[in-house]
Structures are given as C-alpha cells and as structure tokens.
Write a protein that binds this DNA or RNA. Structure first.
Lengths: 196, 196
DNA sequence: GTCTATAGAATGATAGAC
DNA sequence: GTCTATCATTCTATAGAC
C-alpha cells in the first residue's frame, strides 16, 4: 500500500484500527481548538471511551502529536515522489504545486494547523524525519535559485496555500472554485503561465 | 494621541502603565507558545510578579486576550483611515497594502498569532468591534468586485502577509529585503503594477 | 482494548492583608 | 499594585482489574 510505504519513509510505525481512529479524531480537535488546548479527556469523550484507553494507544501527548503530524505529511509523500521523478524541473514544480493545493483544499481544517500551530511547528523543526521531508518539499517547489527573493516567494506561497483554505473569507466558496482560483494565483509565485 | 484615539474606535479602554507592560509581555508569550498554552503563571513569571498581580490588571484571561488583540489591531487603525481618505480606490489599496506589510514585518511574531491562533480567531469573530474593523480592512483591500475570484485572492493575500513574516524560511532574511520583496509579490494580488 | 481509581502538578480565579 | 494563601477544577500520566 502506498500510504503505508509513505509512512515508513517518515519514520512512522504501523497503526492499529483504534489508533488510526484516535488520530483522525485528534486531528479534528487540534484543528478546532489548537493542539495544546486539546486534552486527552476531550479526545476520549469524542471517541466515546475513557482517557486511559487513549493513553493505552499513545503513551504521551507528544507521541500522539508526532503520529498525527506524520499522518498528515504522509499524504504528500506520493505527490512528492511523483514530482521528483519528472525530468523537467519546471514540470516537477507544476505537478507538485497542483498536488499540494489539492491536498490543502481537501483537508481544509488540517492544513492551517499543520503550518501554524506552535506545538506542531516545534515538532516539525525538532523531529528529524519531518525536517528532511519539509526540506525536500520546499526544494522541489523553489527549484535551483535559492535567492532571498525566491525564498520570500516560496514562504508566501506555502503560507498562502495552507492558510487560505481555512480562511473565513473562503468558507462559503465551493471546493472546485477554490481549487481553480488558488492554483491560478499560486502559479504566479513559481513563474508558471496563468490563465489571466 | 493617535493610538489612544484608535483604541477608542475599537472599543478599548485606556490602560495603566502596568497594564500596557502586561499586554506586551503577554503578546510575546502568545506568539511563542500559542494563547491557550500561555498561563497567567507564565505571564506573571515573565513580569517578575505573582499571578494575583496580573489578575488585578485583567480580571479574566478572556479580558486580557481582548485587550491584547485590540492593542495589535489598533496599530492598523491610522493606516486604515489614511487609506480611506484617498479619492482613488486603487491608490487607497496601494497605500493600505504598504502599511499592512510594514506592520507585519515590524511585528513578525505577532502577525501570525493574530491571524491563526484559534483563540484569537474566535475572539475576532465574536467580538463586534473587531468584526467591523476587519470588514473595513478587507473592504478597502478588495475594492468593489467581491467576486469569488477576488475573495480567494484577498484571503491568500491576507494570509500570505501575516504568515510569511513568521515563516522559518525567511527567519534569516533582513527586514528591508523582506519588506521590499513581499510588497512586490503582494502587488500582484491586487492588480497593481510590479517591478518584475 | 477498555475500564475504575488515583497521584501529583498546574490551571483559572478569589479573598484579604499590606 | 502587589503579596500570601487558598479553592475547585483540570491536566498529564500510571496502576491494576476485566
């Protein structure tokens, strides 16, 4: 299975059904309240079990946070590898950009949490497999010239994709319109031709 | 004083010196750890006083959060009014955009917290004066045509400005370069001429 | 894998002295 | 404006039974 392989590459262990369900519910609560405002009790309540049952699946909160982050990042692993196999760097950027936007739009709630929650941001910068993955991702999107100008553009792009999908202004906009408009606007950032 | 007037327009009360110091310290901790991960104890420790002293200044945590948010938003009030007094809407967008980016770059830590922290986001959407202000701000930036396309663009712009300044990728980039590059890239969003 | 029960620390918040 | 002291509640985490 692709996602199992992907997980392995981020250092993730294989998960039981109960664990997977816990991770999904935890991610929803993280997105709504923020990571540190989400307690084991809240997760247990949402699952309909007791705190102790959740602790049986993830021994510490940090372990749970790593698992959830890894689950979300692994959704991009396949897209990354597909892009990296392209010969033309510009084509690689194009493929990856479209995938990243697809994922962001399809998981509107999760995207902003992954990018902005202080706890997740810390985990991302301290957990080595995550660091390497994010570097690969940015490397493909930014291409060769890592000038300050390109870096600022990439930062704006990453943030704009992840944050926009959760923004109140677009809450009423349907998925397809959002996807199309974001892709078009985002292409400007990476110097790809646009429709406008 | 301009900032006192501005505060008043957002519904803010006048603050004592001790209160102002508490708000500044609180904002720093909010930015580092997130709002809900920041306790009165942490704020008291950073100030070198006891919890009770902080409670004397702000009776509840919610009151403190509102005060801090109001303090940050009020920094944009003058810029908003200056922009609104412009005859030409395009010129108004131009002036406001430059001010917003200036403020974001000058308060790198605060910007992302204001836009993304779940607790602040909730406060922003539930506290009426904040709602009205944000609507005015977006209204000036978006101009007349509030089409889905324009809305997506505006959301991406708002997010990109607020989030970029705090992004790890630009941590090593000096303020002036960041300001210049962001402004240039951001102008594309609002259909203003760019240098590129 | 789930439960009850509990330990120990930290939380938001208050009362009253100085 | 700051302090000590305290309250009820919640938190992360563990032990042991089913």
């Amino acid at each position: 299975m692709a996602s199992a392989e992907s997980s392995a590459k981020l250092g993730g262990a294989s998960r039981s059904v109960a664990q997977a369900r816990t991770m999904r519910v935890a991610m929803e609560l993280f997105a709504e309240h923020g990571v540190s405002a989400t307690s084991y009790q809240m997760i247990a309540d949402a699952l309909g079990v007791t705190k102790a049952a959740v602790y049986h699946q993830f021994k510490t909160k940090n372990e749970l946070i790593i698992a959830v982050t890894e689950m979300e990042l692994s959704k991009l692993v396949d897209a990354m590898e597909e892009a990296e196999s392209e010969q033309d760097p510009e084509r690689a950027r194009e493929v990856l950009l479209a995938s990243v936007i697809d994922h962001a739009v399809d998981h509107r709630e999760a995207a902003a949490t992954l990018l902005f929650d202080p706890v997740i941001v810390r985990a991302l910068s301290e957990h080595e497999p995550f660091q390497r993955f994010v570097e690969r991702l940015y490397g493909t999107l930014i291409g060769e010239g890592a000038t300050p100008k390109a870096q600022v553009r990439l930062a704006m792009l990453a943030i704009a994709i992840g944050g926009t999908v959760a923004h109140p202004l677009v809450a009423g906009i349907d998925t397809e319109t959002l996807r199309t408009q974001m892709l078009d606007t985002a292409r400007k950032f990476v110097d790809l031709p646009t429709d406008t």
